[in-house]
Design a protein around this nucleic acid. Sequence first.
DNA 1: ATGCCCTGCTGTGCAGGA
Length: 253
Amino acid sequence: MIIASWNVNSVKSRLGHVKDWLEQHHPDVLMLQELKGSEFPVAEFTAIGYQCEFVAQKSYNGVAILSRHPIEVVSRKLAGDATDTQARYLETNINDLRVINIYLPNGNPVGTEKFQYKLDWMDRFKKRLASLKKAGIPVIIGGDYNVIPEDIDCFNPKYWKNDALFQPEPRECYRAYLKMGYIDAFRHFNPEPGQYTFWEYFRQMFNKNQGIRIDHFLVSPLLKKRMTGCMIDKEPRAREKPSDHTPIILAIK
DNA sequence: ATGCCCTGCTGTGCAGGA
């Protein structure tokens, strides 16, 4: 089973890219983040064999799961704050797996209520992970985590030192997820530095491979032996009018 | 030290992204 995740930076602007990629790779599941708008082009995807579930809002955020297998929605929001209306979470069952798509808050600038929202969101998510672990549910969480886990996950730590993605608190919280037993699938298979999922649009960052690794798959320890690979596909980032992120792909047997 | 570039919105410059 092939499961992919891609922050598309507007599904409307990237519709052609996404359809091309689906027809090229035929993944079983594709998680999308940053839909950026209330509308979602369901018919465009059902026409090429993908069922859709999505959570959207005006202008910002938004997550969707496309699947060749039936999708059963478990939750459209992250528990723990009834006042949180941002479209960042979609939890589903697909085949025998709990499949969760997250768009974790960016948190910039540091020291504002946005940064606090990120920390609160990460804490709420930690509680969800603990609950799933306790229930013995095999789970795959893909998405844009907006966290640079280690120094080797960016081209230059000094460049990122004041950014919310690189602060000690979110990084520590991400490591707490790992300490609970969840596996960073990409790092599990690929120990080398210099492998990224995001490059800023400006200053020729992609051409110089000056990026960061912030799109991740966390996988239940229950599924460790079923993982057969995890890779980043840089090809879509090299195209005309790309998203600033590129897909990450997980294989599970 | 800052902006670079890109997107949505009913905008005509913002806010937000990372």
